[in-house]
């Protein structure tokens, strides 16, 4: 699998990320940046794919970005990326962070596989995929979320990401990483069960999988909070998510 090759890489290993501007046909100011540990939010392009795409078509939608000086290692912001994004978005976006959904997150075109949203009442985040049509604890269904935050906007508190990205090392690392995850649709959770277990183990909370609520627990913050307290979800004891 292509994803496996990338899985062994870390953002620190490379000096070049890749842009993706395929979605500018309908979100004209949106610019994706793909790093080894942040695959494209559509789930279709990882860093390797972008590299290959560039080598096949050097003037295409995937351009190399020399990331340059790191401005914020925790939230994931680089000078070179900012400069590229500002130019490619024609001034609409001046900067964004790779590893945060709370502070100036990356923009979203609308074709994201999943959308993560902050759940202030639970001091955590949730994520929902395209395949789940029901209500979610943030009060918005996937389609509403996509409408609210799509179109190339950076919407603090929300970020589009791929399914694969959930278990990548840098997933919302600046906000506390995967340990912030308090709710996912059951099907999505089960689909990536093995990878969640593995990642959770590495983060030192091997039973995280069973602590993440799903729609069988509830679809409002009020419903899932008692569950999180009962199982002792790590997010509850983290720093407040809304600063």
């Amino acid at each position: 699998m292509r994803d496996e090759r990338v899985e062994k890489m870390q953002d620190e290993d490379v000096d070049t990320f890749y842009s993706c501007t395929l979605c500018q046909s309908f979100a004209p100011s949106h610019v994706c940046s793909v790093s080894p540990e942040r695959t494209g939010l559509c789930g279709a392009y990882n860093w390797m794919d972008c590299k290959a795409s560039y080598e096949i078509n050097p003037t295409g939608p995937n351009q190399p970005i020399k990331i340059g000086e790191c401005l914020d290692p925790k939230l994931g912001q680089w000078k070179g990326v900012n400069e590229f994004v500002e130019k490619a978005s024609r001034g609409a976006t001046t900067h964004y962070n790779f590893y945060s959904m709370v502070t100036d997150p990356m923009t979203t075109c609308g074709c994201c596989e999943c959308i993560a949203a902050m759940l202030p009442g639970c001091n955590g985040v949730m994520t929902v995929g395209r395949d789940y049509n029901g209500d979610t604890p943030c009060g918005m269904k996937f389609t509403t979320l996509a409408g609210v935050m799509g179109g190339g906007a950076s919407s603090p508190g929300f970020v589009g990401h791929s399914k694969f990205n959930i278990t990548q090392g840098k997933f919302i690392k600046g906000d506390g990483g995967l340990l912030r995850m308090v709710w996912m649709p059951k099907a999505l959770k089960e689909e990536i069960k093995e990878r969640i277990m593995k990642r959770a183990e590495a983060l030192g909370v091997p039973d995280l999988y069973d602590k993440i609520a799903d729609e069988t627990v509830g679809t409002t913050e009020e419903e899932i909070l008692p569950f999180l307290q009962k199982v002792g979800h790590p997010a509850l004891s983290m720093d407040p998510i809304v600063g």
Binding site: M118, D135, C138, G139, V148, T220
Partner: peptide, 11 residues
Amino acid sequence: GVPTCLAFAMN
């Protein structure tokens, strides 16, 4: 009219 304060804030 919307389910959460966050959704209202986004609107």
